[in-house]
Design a binder for these strands. Structure first.
Length: 447
RNA sequence: UCCUCGGUAGCUCAAUUCGGCAGAGCGGCCGGCUGUUAACCGGUUGGUUGCAGGUUCAAGUCCUGCCCGAGGAGCCA
């Protein structure tokens, strides 16, 4: 009696008669021989049907089944090196075929080249194709690795609000939404301030969810809605923070290598580059980074690059700076000790150098840019108040935040890791919009 | 907000420096083929050239304005 199986476990069923439920991804018509590539959500498998081996009516139905129809296929599993699919190398010799629904009308997403705009308009269908499917499977594994690592290291998941009364950081643009009785709420751009409250109850915490930035950024690294995991740790200084970050990021990458090898292979990812991602990661200071950039500028003959890399002490790095710096390393790169003026108000000053703060960014290799921003936070209430006043932030809104430093303040640190940039880097894809199921960009709210 | 590139069939694109019958491939449909890998071969289907004006005997092509998209800068994860 044939058993229902999932394609991802097909290797365990060689020689058995099985049932696959799924959708017709592609069909190759060879006349008396039909190849169906069927996907069932867990993988893609080739089903081979010969005219002489099936009742005529069934074979005719199979030979005309439209792309993306839902079907139930019965057949014998066999190993065959020629068989395409994910995992591939196995195929099903069809003994039975049942149509659940024949797809109606032409399917828009052909197995051919399409433009970006067309694909994004059809994102609800595009995610069925193997490349997008593989990326989103890896995203799910990244998220699971994140939660498993944090849960396994004593962190408590404490969720923070998405509707907030004010900016966490005054600098970036917020999405505004009407709230009851003529009030206004903002979509969160970080759970950090709430995380800081939560560590005084739980020690080590993280929040994980969507965050929103109304920046008019149009690049391959930006979305207006993106997911971020933000751990925050009590009794933790900047050095300890970097150790946590490199352990954390390495664990995520290694987990994907273990569990999503088929998907990485399908994407054509150079896995050797990922296998190198183990602690420790190189660490350079902002000052050292500036020296490196000056050296790179001196070496290059490209006037455009010279122009792009121009930077003065006090400025934050742009994308070109990050790319050039990370080119010199084959692991993620820590850059710490940014100028205070370039960073948020809550960052602890460097001892003896108030113009520098105890911040650290983690830059991904291969030009994927900043995947983590973090810092040690100010723990002294008076200093925090002073910084809030310097930045002209509304003091009343931060009353609760200053409270945290009054009742048992401790050195503490935290960071935020951007999920889509991390997934894009691990997958080796060109744009973060493919690393989230339904990307939201400045020009796109559909589907 | 700025810079660069683009918008022609359902999709991807072509249409000759210098205006002259709007085309091909793919997809769909019909037929052929027992090992295809985005199959291949033959036939067939398919157009408000982003929008609005203007110049001209004639505009996809030239001019003006607008709309939309992409990549990048700035900002950021």
């Amino acid at each position: 009696m044939a058993r229902l199986i999932r394609v991802e476990e097909i290797a365990r069923h060689v020689g058995e008669e099985v049932i696959i439920q799924g959708w017709v991804y592609n069909r190759t018509d060879k006349g008396k021989l039909q190849f169906l590539l069927v996907r069932d959500g867990s993988g893609f498998v080739q089903c081979v049907a010969f005219r002489k081996e099936l009742p005529e009516a069934i074979f005719e139905q199979l030979a005309h089944i439209p792309q993306e129809s839902s079907v139930r296929v019965t057949g014998i599993v066999r190993a065959d090196k020629r068989a395409p699919g994910i995992p591939g190398g196995y195929e099903i010799g069809v003994t039975g075929f049942e149509v659940i629904q024949a797809a109606q009308g032409d399917y828009p997403v052909a197995l051919k080249e399409h433009g970006v705009d067309f694909l994004l308009d059809h994102r609800h269908l595009w995610i069925r194709t193997p490349r997008q499917w593989a990326i989103l499977r890896i995203r799910a594994t990244v998220i699971r690795a994140i939660r498993d690592w944090l849960d396994g290291h004593g962190y408590v998941n404490v969720d923070t609000p998405i509707l907030t009364p004010a900016a966490c950081e005054g600098t970036t643009t917020l999405f505004e939404t009407p709230y009851f009785d003529d009030e206004v709420a903002y979509l969160t751009q970080s759970g950090q301030l709430y995380n800081e409250a939560n560590i005084f109850a739980f020690g080590k915490v993280y929040c994980f969810g969507p965050t929103f930035r109304a920046e008019k950024s149009k690049t391959r690294r930006h979305l207006t809605e993106f997911w971020m995991v933000e751990p925050e740790i009590a009794f933790c200084d900047l050095d300890q923070l970097m150790e946590i970050e490199e352990q954390f990021v390495s664990a995520i990458v290694q987990r994907v290598l273990e569990e999503r090898a088929d998907e990485l292979r399908y994407l054509g990812r150079d896995t050797a580059a990922l296998e190198r991602i183990t602690p420790p990661f190189p660490r350079i200071s902002y000052d050292e980074a500036l020296e490196m950039l000056a050296a790179i500028r001196a070496e290059t003959d490209d006037p455009r690059l010279k122009q792009l890399l121009a930077i003065e002490w006090g400025q934050d790095f742009g994308s070109p700076h990050e790319t050039e710096l990370t080119k010199r390393f084959d692991k993620p790169l820590f850059v710490y000790g940014y100028p205070t003026e370039a960073k948020a108000f809550y960052m602890e000053p460097w001892p003896g150098r108030p113009e520098v703060c105890k911040s650290v960014d983690l830059l991904a290799p291969e030009g994927y840019g900043e995947i983590i921003g973090g810092s040690e936070r100010i723990s002294d209430p008076d200093l925090l108040l002073e910084r809030i006043r310097e930045e002209n932030l509304p003091e009343e809104a931060f009353a609760w935040y200053i409270d945290l430093r009054r009742y048992g303040s401790v050195p503490h640190s935290g960071f935020g890791l951007g999920i889509e940039r991390t997934v894009a880097w691990i997958c080796g894809i060109e744009h973060v919009r493919q690393a989230i199921p339904y990307p939201r960009t400045i020009k796109r709210l559909y589907p």
